[in-house]
Amino acid sequence: MKLEIKKISVKTNDKEILKDLSLEINSGEIHAIMGPNGVGKSTLSKVIMGYPDYQIINGSIMVDNKEINNLEIDERSKLGIFLVYQNPISIDGVTTSELIKASMDSKGERQGLYKYVLELEGNSEKLKMDKSMLHRGFNVSFSGGERKKNEILQVLMLKPKFIILDELDSGLDVDSLKIVSEALNNYLLENPDTSVLIITHYTRILELIKPEFVHILKNGHIVKSGDYNLSKLIEKYGYNQSFELEGNMNNE
């Protein structure tokens, strides 16, 4: 899936959060957005997903050359956009299995219960999830890491074409991060047209899911883009010093 963000400005509660932001992610590409706290990274993920609390005052979001500014959240999901949440909700009384089945049904991917359960259990094994979790309340009494695995389980089941990973590594221990990264990398190998936008503070996840493009977000717009090496520079010197160093290197 190709996603283009063309000079969007976004406000919420009368405050402008994103300003003239442009980004183009082609089919099969992996991009990372980095930046310190409060620069609009998570806002960007919710704007792409269509949260009504965020108003696009200028610009457009295009998916495969069609504007989606006015599409509801569920319609964007049905196009194949999937947000892996930083803090997924829990719903007691509705099981994980039931919620994923409802999602698949709503996308017209109805399948027999037996086949569905086999696929669900197979994918949960890939993520080293206890099968009993599938039949408990959605995310109820799950640890932070288990919730993130539950998010990736939905990726494997719903087969999205554009995945936004919002701080996937927060709340995940090293082993769990490796497990979910491996599952995602395998998914991307099997679905090479799927695009990914990684939103992160840290470079740890970028070593496991390697982006071709890295962008730095500051004050609501992208101030710097580069390849994977840009993230290594940030890891070593931090955001502010990286800009200075790169400026000096260019001058030399």
Binding site: I73, D74, L83, S103, K107
Partner: peptide, 9 residues
């Protein structure tokens, strides 16, 4: 919103 983001009306 979470449920809508999973395609559910």
């Amino acid at each position: 919103y979470y449920l809508a983001s999973r395609g559910i009306s």
